[in-house]
């Protein structure tokens, strides 16, 4: 392996708490074990504290595969079960195109352009009956 490759993040991904929201920033490749660790960390933190939202910033992710797509969908689903909303923020155009070409349109996932927009989205009240569904749209 040359130094040029972006190496898997060693250890675990830090989960920051900002008020009622957890902020996770992914950088570079996400290793299998790191991803499982992150899923576990998130669910435990949400269960322990009264968190209403999770923001996953993936603006630092340049290469994506079906694995990352599945991890994101799983995190969204499990936080949903714990009554918190997940927003994926800052996806790069190339990553979005790749996911779509892979057939992973992730319909249940909330997305935002930036972390700021994601926090704004989480600040909005939950519309009853639509949690976990598609993005809110106008009547």
């Amino acid at each position: 392996m040359s130094e040029g490759f972006s190496r898997p993040v060693a250890g675990h991904v830090p989960v920051l708490r900002l008020g009622d929201v957890l902020l996770v920033t992914l950088q570079g490749d996400l290793h299998d074990s790191t991803a499982f660790q992150l899923q576990q960390d998130l669910s435990e933190t949400i269960a322990r504290s009264r968190v209403t939202g999770v923001v996953i910033d993936i603006s630092g992710v340049e290469i994506v595969d079906s694995f990352l797509g599945r991890v994101l969908a799983e995190i969204a689903a499990q936080t949903e079960l714990l009554a918190a909303r997940t927003v994926v923020a800052g996806m790069r155009p190339a990553v979005a195109i790749t996911l779509v070409e892979l057939g992973l349109t992730l319909p249940g996932l909330r997305t935002a352009l930036t972390t700021e927009a994601a926090l704004e989205l989480l600040a909005q009240p939950i519309v009853p009956g639509r949690a976990g569904g598609v993005r809110e749209e106008s009547p």
């Binding site: 996806m91 155009p93 779509v100 070409e101 749209e137």
Partner: peptide, 12 residues
């Protein structure tokens, strides 16, 4: 596809 990609990025 374009619509789905834009949605993934957080745009409608």
């Amino acid at each position: 596809k374009t619509v789905a990609a834009a949605r993934l990025m957080g745009a409608e």
